[in-house]
């Protein structure tokens, strides 16, 4: 994965990494920030990161809502900054 360190891309750009972990497409899932309560589709959330993983920041309050990191052994998902995630079933 190639993400630029200082400039964000969108959650959409991390869709491939998500699909390594989850059966459903998470780019259309909605995520509620634990800090400010703002709700956003993951595909639209700003993502900062590098080769090792992605940091998702809330558009409302700029806090970290989610981290997804790939290591040689597996995947770390930190959702401390999120209150709730809803992933829609396909079709």
């Amino acid at each position: 994965m190639h993400l630029h360190g200082d400039k964000p891309v969108d959650g959409n750009a991390v869709a491939g990494l998500f699909r390594e972990v989850f059966a459903l497409d998470l780019t259309t899932a909605s995520l509620i920030c634990a800090g400010c309560g703002a709700e956003a589709e993951i595909g639209s959330v700003r993502v900062f990161g590098g080769t090792m993983g992605a940091v998702f920041r809330c558009d409302g309050c700029d806090e970290v809502v989610m981290r997804l990191v790939r290591t040689p052994d597996g995947y770390w998902l930190d959702m401390q900054g999120a209150r709730r995630l809803f992933a829609r079933k396909v079709g």
Binding site: D10, G11, N12, A15, G16, R19, D25, T27, T28, E41, I42, G43, S44, V90
Partner: peptide
């Protein structure tokens, strides 16, 4: 390559 990916955009 792998895909297609992403249902948001």
């Amino acid at each position: 390559l792998r895909g297609p990916i992403g249902g948001y955009f």
